[in-house]
Nucleic acid binder design. Structure first.
Length: 153
DNA sequence: GCCAACGTTGGC
DNA sequence: GCCAACGTTGGC
């Protein structure tokens, strides 16, 4: 799950304990979330649009996606005038803080790891804010998080 | 700040 | 339903 740390970072998540992951406004990302996010699943928290893009830690899905309240709030940047309570467009999962890594797994490191070259994150021009990570990719990422210097994961 | 790549919008 | 114009994302 991507987030801009100036908006909401892993530190924010840690201090809040858990949060409604509001503001997903892309149908593909939404569909991923509705179809694939299950309570108990681990998620990688990725910081984008910042000096060091990369994965900064882990969260856990606490609840299945529910209706995103920000779509009905005219003062919210995520307000969607075309959505209605009767037919809500957008949903959000509740995410609980799990851990923050002592060092992030940088995007550049992910790029240089051969077994991660198929990650959706590295696909040309891709912009999805919620992406699936294959089990083998997840294992590799966790290994990199523990051993940042391991170039051959 | 630049710019490539993508999603969305809206006229027709 | 096409598609050009526009807005957004996000690394650099």
């Amino acid at each position: 799950m991507k987030t801009e740390p100036e908006e909401f970072s892993i530190d924010t998540l840690e201090s809040e304990g858990s949060t409604l992951w509001t503001g997903v406004r892309n149908y593909q990302a939404r569909n991923h979330m509705m179809r694939d996010m299950k309570p108990g699943q681990t998620v990688f928290v990725y910081h984008s649009s910042c000096p060091q893009p990369g994965i900064y830690g882990l969260g856990q899905v606490e609840s299945s996606p529910c209706v995103d309240p920000t779509q009905f709030d005219p003062r919210s940047p995520y307000f969607d005038p075309k959505s209605s309570a009767a037919k809500p467009r957008w949903h959000c999962a509740k995410i609980r803080f799990l851990e923050k890594w002592s060092r992030p797994v940088a995007l550049s490191q992910i790029r240089h790891t051969p077994s991660l070259k198929e990650m959706a994150l590295l696909k040309r021009g891709q912009r999805l804010s919620i992406q699936l990570v294959a089990p083998q990719q997840a294992k590799t990422l966790l290994r990199l998080a523990l051993a940042p210097d391991n170039r051959h994961a």
